[in-house]
Structures are given as structure tokens and as C-alpha cells.
Design a protein around this nucleic acid. Sequence first.
DNA 1: ATGTGGCCAGTAAGGCCGATT
DNA 2: AATCGGCCTTACTGGCCACAT
Lengths: 254, 254
Amino acid sequence: MFEKQTLRTIVQALQQYSREAKDIFDNAMASSSNEVIVLAEDLVQYALEVAEVFPMNKRFAGFIDYKRARWSPFVSGLMPQVLLVDAKASKENNRDTLQRSQLPMDAEFRKSDGSIGKLAAGVPGHLEIPSATSEPIYAVTTTILVHYYYKDNLTGMPPFRDLQSIYVLAVPHGRLKDRYNPDPDTTFFGEGKHSSARNEDPRIRVYFSRLKKACPWRLQELKFLPGHDFSSPRWREGESLEEEILLPFSYLPR
Amino acid sequence: MFEKQTLRTIVQALQQYSREAKDIFDNAMASSSNEVIVLAEDLVQYALEVAEVFPMNKRFAGFIDYKRARWSPFVSGLMPQVLLVDAKASKENNRDTLQRSQLPMDAEFRKSDGSIGKLAAGVPGHLEIPSATSEPIYAVTTTILVHYYYKDNLTGMPPFRDLQSIYVLAVPHGRLKDRYNPDPDTTFFGEGKHSSARNEDPRIRVYFSRLKKACPWRLQELKFLPGHDFSSPRWREGESLEEEILLPFSYLPR
DNA sequence: ATGTGGCCAGTAAGGCCGATT
DNA sequence: AATCGGCCTTACTGGCCACAT
């Protein structure tokens, strides 16, 4: 529920900013082939920073695009949370690649040759935040992916791109492994994008269809339709698989 | 004066955040050799975003680390400004390398073989911001570099690095070319870091000593001294080369 | 010793394409 | 025609080294 609430807020923020996002994304001059990556990162920041809740006085640096320690409103009160959002730009619309440092759950999956692939989580389940008063605070980690799916406009004239949709994924917390990846054959993970031949750092893929099957609301799509904008609500409840594990007060690090 | 005022504010923000900055920079685990780059970017963001002034409802995306359109307090009133800050992390402490997209002034300099090197500005002098009311607003562009100068700690034990100082440079606006780079032999620019042999995109260097000579206050240094923190003011007035060109109200794009 | 030039190296982040279902 | 696996390309950022003062 906590992750769901977070995802819902983020989707709404992205939606509200979607018109300008598409405008910027499509029309930004291609100063380099790298452009879309930077655009995605900036757009995520713009959309989310207006929606920030009670910030905590804690900063940390690292490889994740958007990250905030904050007090997040939850049904049962304010929850200390570390929100980690990674921006992706891609011409594919069925999967995302994660670095280990972006993986919140120990993953295992069946490889094509029948063997088992594994990748240990790189994102800790919580962060310990020193408190001025007494006990340190344990802030639960929440991992979100924002995936800008686009096509090139080959005419060479603006708009240079056509942003098709924005996928937003809530990657389950490591504690939810029992539910989402109890064994190598039950998972939404798949082989990574790295080249093992070149000894690159292993990566891993998240497949949209399988994540959606496991839990519909964890895969949201903001789809750009010609002549249609996002003034209307777009949250998709998915089915009613809402009995998400409650982390809040029962949550203590181990 | 406008750029000076801006630089002063930024230096102060960086200074206030310098203690935590050093802590994070020195101790962050080296998850990759790229780490310092990300650290520098994040630290600049953390330091500056608390000091933001009246934001303008305008966003743009691109290759610059920290960028804001805002109304900046100035002696004669509020000035529309586009602040562009680029974060650098380096083991050198005498120069910075700029991409063309970070260069606010058409640059020319004498090359070692006697010929003249040139690089056209990639940063526009101003941005036109559509106004709800009537005339568009022209926001002056201000380019700042924040350079984290560090050394490695080779013991392999934390702290992994030793942040020596933070240099903050105000790169003159393109309009000030007459003063700062009237001819190829009068400049703080120098040959870039690109490999011409490999046909890389040309870059250009800004040399600290020469910039300082041309205008002392444009090169500020926050130096970390053992056992000393930054509780005291550190703005260095430099000499009294304060007769900076006044852009404000006389400023209109051409 | 420093100041300059400039060749490379390491690290993302995806584009793509060929092999499978 | 989609789904996967995975090799390789591109660009970004500085580390570093060789000369020249």
C-alpha cells in the first residue's frame, strides 16, 4: 500500500507535467545522440520536485537520478521514506534494464540454457538516518522507474522525436521477494543487457508484461494519444490486487 | 555587478554546505571511478537549491547540471535570470574544460603553433521567456562553474578522498567579450582537452590564473584547511575591479 | 616546478540485430 | 510478429603523460 500510494502520487505529478514534458522531449534540438537521456532525467526532476512532501534533513549522493529522504503521508501517519527514482529513455516499450545499484530485491531467474541467473540487490531496504533526539530513524526505500518511450522523427525537422508514452513502475521492495520472486521460475526479472563476453558489470531486466501480471498497479502507463491531453485522471487501478504487504509500523530493519 | 552578486550568493551557499559536502565527498564509497562526478553534481544541487530565489515558471532541459530560471534580487530590482551551473570534479586545480554547450562567449586564443584557435559560444546570451501578460521576458544567462578539487586517499581505507578546495568561477557573459577577450592574445581561454586526432568535439579550457588576473572576484576558492571549518565569511573581494558592466536595465537582446 | 596540449580510458545508457518462440 | 539475449556504439568526463617554459 505504501508503494502504491507513492506510485500514485508520482504518476499524478508526471501526468500534470506531461504536456510540457512532451513538448520539451519532442522538440529539444538533438545536440547529441545522448540528448534523450538528459531530457528524461530533467523531466523527471521537474515533474517530481513540485510534488515533494516533507523533506528530511538528510542528503546522500549517488547514481540515482532523483532521490529524496522525506516524510511521506500515509494512511496511518507520516512514514520516513527514501524515494529513489530512475529515469529511462528508450525505443523499447516492454522492459527496462537495471544496474545492480538500482535493484531493490535479490533477483533470480531462469536463463535460456536452463541454468539460474542471480543478481543481489544493490539498493538497501532502508536507510538509517541519525536523529537529533534519540533513536535513529529507519527510512524505507522505494524504487520507482520512469520510462520515456519514444520514436525518432526521421524527417530531420522538428519535432525531432515523438514521445509515445511514459511508463511508471514501482519495483517491489526487497522484503516482498516471497511474493514476487519466490523461485527462479516465478519472476518478472530476466537476463540483463550487459555483455558477458566483455566482462561488463551484470545488469538485469524488468519485463513489463510479467510485472503487470504479478501486480497490475505496479505498471502504469501515461499514453500520449493524438489530439488528446492528460487533463483527465489516468491512474489505472489494475485489478484489485491491493492487499499489498504493509510495511509501515511493523517495519523494522533486520 | 549582476554576475558578481550571483557568484557571491552561490559561494555563500556552497560555503554553508561545505562541511557536509566534504564529509560526503571524502567518504562516499567508490562504487565506480565515476563516483566523483556524480558526487560533485549532487553536492552542487544540494547546496544551491536551498538558496533559490523567486523561480520563474519556465523549464528547459539540457546538458547543464544545475539550471534555473528565476527572478534574481539585484540592487535596482528583480532581474530575470537563467542561472547555469556546471559541476566539475578534478585532480587539477588550475583550469577547467568546457564543452561548447557550456561556453557563454565566443572564444579565441593563440595556439602554440602561432595560429588562432576559436570556439563559438554555445550558451545564448539570454533566453526568451513567454509572458502571460504581454511582452516576452528576456532572461540574462549567467554561467558558473563549481570545481571540486580533490586528491585520492591511497590507503584504501575511508576517507577515500580528500577534498582540497572548491573553486567557483563566474564565466563572463558573452557581451563582455570586448573586455575579456578582445583579441586572441588577451584571454583566459586556452586549448581544449579534446583529441583532435580522434576528431572529438572541440572543447576549450579556462585557466584560473588568467581569469583571476583579468578579474579577481571571478575566481573564488573555498579552501579546506585541516582543523578549520567555514563558519567565517570567505568571499574574497579581489582587488577593486568592480566596475563591471551593468547589464540590468540597459540589457536588451540583440 | 609549472603551465599547456592532447591522447586515452572508464563508465554509463541504450541502439540494434540475430536467434527463438 | 513479438520476445529475448547480448554485443557494440556513442558520448561524457577527467586521468595522465609528454613537452615546453
